[in-house]
Write a protein that binds this DNA or RNA. Structure first.
Length: 478
RNA sequence: CGGGGUGUGGCGCAGUUGGUAGCGCGCGACGUUUGGGACGUCGAUGCCGCAGGUUCGAAUCCUGUCACUCCGACCA
């Protein structure tokens, strides 16, 4: 029943996944386009998802000892240039401020594409002793990268994110932090977004500009594409040396601190859409859904129906995010509307239900209708929300597993890359030439990561046949 | 930055050999309806993306330009 496509304005996923995505973000009122290229207006329903994400993640950051700060939006060019790899990576896509008021600036200012350099400048001022370490800072902000082609949430010129920047006494401690925060992301994806993902290390070719090592979380979208869902970088003392950040150690010698940075962005909303959505629209995981339960009064003009709906809302709203839609639209229209918007649980209450002291609960994932007593409505709704979360993660897990393939030969790799969208597990020698070759031959399949848990598939590289160093997960990405 | 597609009321679209703009949805009023996108009557909404040109006359033909979108290349 719920599997039938009911919203004809939304292109079917199987017909055109890209168009389906665009239709959904528009129809579900997540975003609108603005007059500035690549800059999107995040509408209340979309922004509410972000607020819920922020709230949950922020608590996880605080629980791991981090503090929020706010850095300026503008970076002087000279500051950006202090770290060579970093500036090479980001300068080409910076937007620049060159005029202030009426006057041309003596030095142009980049609108931050990321804030490593600003944090370094600040850390240089406030770190003198090992007693000043560690510094565990995070900021929630916007950044700007002048992207050529953009797409709501997945790649926009301006986007919202959080960037953690930490400084540590030792390399080990910084490495530990890098991995710890990657796991925070993995847990958040799983427990809040209901999205399973592969985590691991980026290859040299794919790592962050200026990092010693980059770790990544790679969830799979419905169509088998990967999305870089978040990254955590270990910088060693590279930035510290470039920015001359030093501290006096316990042994009374001058040392460089070791640094990390890690971030996730509004792109996660794109991940939610593409991991969970269906032909009827969005499905938002309960933990971050702006509306967890929508109450649809049936025959609301009849005596007592609306009062009952409001009473149920009052009960549920003690612990849940609830909306009663008492608008004048038809019942059927409301059903479709909230399916499109991905509300996880719908509660129908009408005269017949009131007579029976019951109501109808409907799961957005399965479409299953459940008649439940009003006596323990909170428990019933809570249980269904939990079930929705579990069903989402199971579905996404099944998608991930069924679209993950193993290639042990070159021909097999190319065949899968051409014919089966998804992840490919294959051995790799460690040479960037092989990564480049596979990408060229397949028209875009890249290494996603070297997962923390590697399988031993064979002894040799799937591309060149030389001795293999790692198992790599490969795939196409958004 | 390459390759395709599209620009006409808020949205989706039609508009023939050039003749002065139409349909559906939505929107407003009133009435009837109400357990899967209800129905009737009346009503409002347009510099046909923008700029040039051809023509007595351009949404329509020509040139240029801009925007959006999909697929690549590049990045979160």
């Amino acid at each position: 029943m719920a599997k039938e496509k009911k919203v004809e304005q939304i292109t079917s996923m199987d017909v055109d996944f890209g168009q389906w995505y665009t239709d959904v973000v528009k129809k579900a009122e997540l975003v609108d386009y603005s007059s500035v290229h690549g800059c999107m207006i995040i509408r209340p329903y979309g922004y509410a998802i972000w607020e819920n994400i922020q709230k949950d993640l922020d608590a996880r950051f605080k629980a791991t000892g981090h503090e929020n700060v706010y850095m300026p939006m503008l970076i002087p060019e000279s500051l950006l240039q202090k770290e060579k790899d970093h500036v090479e990576g980001f300068a080409p896509e910076c937007a620049w401020v060159t005029v202030g008021g009426q006057n041309k600036l003596s030095e142009r200012l980049a609108i931050r594409p990321t804030s490593e350099t600003l944090f370094c400048e600040h850390y240089r001022n406030i770190i003198q002793s090992y007693r000043d370490l560690p510094k565990l800072y995070n900021q929630w902000c916007n950044v700007m990268r002048w992207e050529k082609t953009t797409r709501p949430f997945l790649r926009t010129s301006e986007f919202l994110w959080q960037e953690g920047h930490t400084m540590h006494e030792t390399a080990e401690e910084a490495q530990e932090e890098t991995i710890k925060m990657l796991h925070v992301y993995r847990d958040f994806y799983r427990d809040a977004l209901a999205i399973p993902a592969i985590i691991g290390q980026k290859t040299e070719k794919e790592k962050f500009a200026g990092a010693e090592a980059t770790y990544t979380i790679e969830p799979m979208m419905h169509n088998g594409y990967a999305l870089q869902g978040g990254t955590s970088h270990y910088f060693g003392d590279g930035f510290a040396r470039s920015f001359d950040i030093t501290y006096t150690g316990r042994d009374n010698t001058v040392k460089y601190p070791h640094q990390t940075s890690w971030g996730v962005s509004t792109r996660m909303i794109g991940a939610i859409i593409m991991a969970h959505g269906d032909d009827n629209g969005l499905i938002i995981p309960p933990a971050v859904a702006p509306i967890q339960v929508v109450i649809i009064p049936v025959a609301q003009h009849k005596e007592g129906v609306l009062d009952k709906a409001y009473a149920i809302k009052a009960e549920l709203a003690k612990t849940l995010r609830v909306k009663v839609d008492d608008g004048e639209q038809s019942t059927g229209w409301k059903f479709s509307q909230y399916e499109m918007k991905g509300v996880p649980v719908r509660l129908e209450i009408g005269p017949r239900d009131i007579e029976n002291n019951s109501c109808v609960l409907v799961s957005r994932v399965t479409g299953e209708k459940k008649f439940v007593s009003l006596d323990n409505i909170v428990e019933e709704v809570t249980a269904m929300l939990k079930a929705v979360h579990n069903e989402l993660i199971e579905k996404a897990q099944a998608n991930l597993e069924s679209k993950t393939y193993v290639a042990t030969t070159h021909e097999e790799f190319l065949d899968i890359a051409q014919n089966k969208p998804g992840f490919i597990k294959a051995m790799w020698c460690g040479d960037v030439e092989c990564e480049d070759q596979l990408k060229d031959e397949t028209g875009g399949v890249k290494s996603r990561c070297i997962p923390f848990v590697e399988d031993h598939l064979s002894d040799v590289c799937v591309c060149c046949g030389k001795k293999a160093k790692h198992m790599v997960v490969w795939g196409r990405q958004y």
